[in-house]
Design a protein around this nucleic acid. Sequence first.
DNA 1: GCAAAAGTGTTACGGCTACACCCATGG
DNA 2: CCATGGGTGTAGCCGTAACACTTTTGC
Lengths: 226, 226
Amino acid sequence: MKPFHSYQNPSLAIDLVVFGYQQRTLSVLLLNRNEMPFKDTWTLPGAFLQMDERFKDTCSRVLKTKLGMDNVYLEQLYSFDEPERDPRGRVIAIAHYALINPKNFAITAGSMANDVQWFDIHQMPELGFDHQEIFTQALQRLRSKILYFPVGFELLDDLFTMPELHELYECILDTTIDRRNFRRKILDAQYIINTGKKREGLQNRHPDLYKFNKKLPKNAFQLNIN
Amino acid sequence: MKPFHSYQNPSLAIDLVVFGYQQRTLSVLLLNRNEMPFKDTWTLPGAFLQMDERFKDTCSRVLKTKLGMDNVYLEQLYSFDEPERDPRGRVIAIAHYALINPKNFAITAGSMANDVQWFDIHQMPELGFDHQEIFTQALQRLRSKILYFPVGFELLDDLFTMPELHELYECILDTTIDRRNFRRKILDAQYIINTGKKREGLQNRHPDLYKFNKKLPKNAFQLNIN
DNA sequence: GCAAAAGTGTTACGGCTACACCCATGG
DNA sequence: CCATGGGTGTAGCCGTAACACTTTTGC
């Protein structure tokens, strides 16, 4: 058998589109690079794959060491192969996206305050590398997936109200959805379970608190928007 | 700047799920390996990515040199990172699938007759590496994509009849679809254009010949099956 | 003129959209 | 008791599934 790894191989980078939801806004976590290339430019967080790592391991390493996050919803997105996408040389990027609840991870304080930051998806800066394209694909994927699969609960607290879930969907899909029709569809799909508890301390009627139904039924769920 | 490619990187393989449609059967092209590992075992065709190649270049190279095919519909599928997936060492596979019309490429004759062969997707042999998983995902992707996107025309001749298209869909989705409802949906979606010509030489009524509408309208097409 | 298959039309049901109404809470 | 927002119900429309009928061809 040939000396297998003596060939020259491209480097393998894992790039991460980390989505967070807070203050009724869908945001993405960006990192301001402090070295060349693209020094002082906002980019997606990422790292090179080590020989003993699976993709998810690299993702976890980035999330843990650079962002202090743990136990995160991850999905592989797409791989990017443009030869000139990295000026340092040939780098293949395996893009993933993550969904997290920012409340669980305080990014805003600490030593990284300056170079790690949430950006409203409507107010993104210019990104280095081909990260704009990666981000666009990630958002597209999230938007289409949420129409037929119970993704999105990872962005909320364990307990959430129907209006909160409703607003999340509107925010991600960037549209308005009829409150009552949304409720019925979500309930029919049995994605969520009413806990009987109520959210207290609001000005008006206290809405029911729901939790995600982990044993999700395979009822076809299809959310149609106008 | 660091010596960038001095790190050890995994090898990058491109694996191909080549779908073909013939004799009312959806088939996959498999290759009988003539070297270790998995010698004399059926596998998906593939090759290692060269430093100057994009994914599609590698795909084309495999399709051209190993299979004599050219100008083929290709789509990136998913990347597989299991560290033990290749006994020779760490190999990441970027899987793609291709749709071709076998009529355009005579595989059955020639020097490769013995080690390249079409297999009915219902009668597949055991596959080497993790290729069974890759194949399964490819089939799944094809099946879900055909429900909302005009993929599949690549499997047919340039001119085809409505019953032929109908049968292709039934074959890919492995179900029955009402002939008349199918026709209406496809026509409404404007995926195809009636050429006015007819298929001659049949026993019964001569069906109209259609061609694929290349400037596909973005009407949402959704084929629902029971 | 008969069998087989392709083209065309229709009806009736179900699901969704687009609504209105009632209920709970704080001030 | 009023404003605000959350919970519940419903009517009417539209799309489509499930059909029947007519037309064309070969023998």
